[in-house]
């Protein structure tokens, strides 16, 4: 009988060890330990045995059951490991398959650069202001110390406008500077503000000229503001834009609404000894700026003996082009999806 048990156990262990699936294991398990299985029938036969053999027979049956269950559990674990290993094999994996397209949206590059500058300036206490694109001559020129027939108007190539029913002299603002006086009229000094926005010039367009482009005006109104403060602020601005210290030079520039007026050149951040961006000069003309002209302060309702300040105008479109290496300004407002979807 014991002999018979050992043989059965060996047979079971062999079959279990070679079982290929958990289903096979369950079948073997049922065959031995199920309701009508081998172990059950062994136990059922015990009452028919002589009393002295019953104890052994019971122990054998239990031993067989325990051994089968153990073997099944072992094999089951083996099979589970094998399945994990099989998964790790990853047959047919092609690491060079292209990923699927994500349908994501994009921000316009002008928005991206504008935001960067807004964040930089707001961190230094500047407000972000807005002004109308269709502007009054008064704000675009008169109050900026550019009276009618001033020769500076020649350099502006203004789009003058008619608006049905209006007698006002209207135009598309040629710069963001009109917001200087609007801000002085509306805000209590001292204040600092920037004004990003569209500006317009009547120009023949080509890869580097557009009739509509973006500028960002900056204005600081405070007491005892000097050229030194202006230089400091411009250097901070350039550090924020180019993420490194940039050498600058200030030279005279004529803009009727500032006095003295400057052109600020920055040492070309893209080269060491001349490149196409700086036209081989190693300087790029970046920021017209200056101390706010006393007449402009007066136009804004401020006493030039008490208040002063500086203003600057940043060519946003130009900066966007420099940032992304865009070679044709017309792409910015052209609305081509091939352009827009890159940002």
């Amino acid at each position: 009988m014991t002999q018979g048990i050992d043989a059965r156990l060996e047979d079971a262990q062999t079959r279990i060890a070679s079982a290929a699936s958990t289903e096979d294991l369950r079948a073997i398990e049922r065959e031995f330990t199920g309701k009508d299985g081998v172990v059950a029938s062994m136990l059922a036969a015990i009452p028919t045995l002589p009393p002295e053999e019953r104890r052994d027979a019971g122990q054998s049956a239990n031993r067989l059951k325990t051994a089968v269950l153990e073997a099944v559990a072992t094999r089951e674990a083996e099979l589970a490991d094998a399945a994990l290993d099989a998964e790790r094999e990853a047959d047919g994996f092609d690491s060079t398959l292209p990923p699927p397209r994500l349908h994501r949206g994009t921000l316009h590059p002008v928005t991206r650069v504008t935001r960067e500058l807004e964040d930089l300036f707001t961190s230094m206490g500047y407000r972000v202001l807005d002004g109308p694109e269709v502007e009054l001559d008064e704000y675009n020129f008169e109050k900026l110390n550019i009276p009618a027939d001033h020769p500076a108007r020649d350099t502006q190539d203004t789009f003058y406008c008619d608006s049905p029913g209006s007698k006002a002299t209207l135009l598309l603002r040629t710069h963001t500077s009109p917001v200087q006086v609007r801000a002085m009229e509306r805000l209590e000094p001292p204040f600092r503000a920037i004004v990003p926005g569209k500006v317009f010039r009547q120009e023949t367009t080509d890869a580097s000229h557009e009739h509509t482009f973006h500028q960002m005006e900056g204005l600081v109104i405070d007491k005892d503001v000097s050229v030194g403060h202006l230089i400091g602020a411009m250097k901070t601005l350039l550090r924020g834009i180019f993420k490194k210290d940039i050498e600058v030079r200030l030279r005279p520039g004529y803009f009727p609404f500032v006095e003295p007026g400057f052109e600020l050149d920055a040492r070309c951040p893209f080269c060491e000894d001349g490149c196409s961006v700086c036209k081989q000069t190693t300087w790029i003309e970046l920021l017209p700026c200056g101390l706010v002209h006393p007449n402009v302060l007066e136009a804004g309702g401020l006493d030039p003996e008490e208040w002063g300040g500086f203003a600057f105008g940043l060519g946003l479109s130009r900066l966007v082009m420099l940032r992304y290496g865009i070679d044709d300004v017309r792409h910015l407002l052209g609305g081509d999806m091939r352009f827009l979807s890159q940002f």
């Binding site: 206490g125 972000v128 050229v227 030194g228 400091g232 006095e259």
Partner: peptide
């Protein structure tokens, strides 16, 4: 102010020391 410019440009703006704007720190 026009004379301030005359003096500044001949003195050279490059010789003007950079100065920080100083004001109370307040968020806009």
């Amino acid at each position: 102010r026009d004379l301030v410019e005359e003096i500044g440009r001949i003195h050279r703006y490059g010789s003007v020391p950079e100065a920080p704007l100083v004001a109370a720190i307040e968020p806009p």
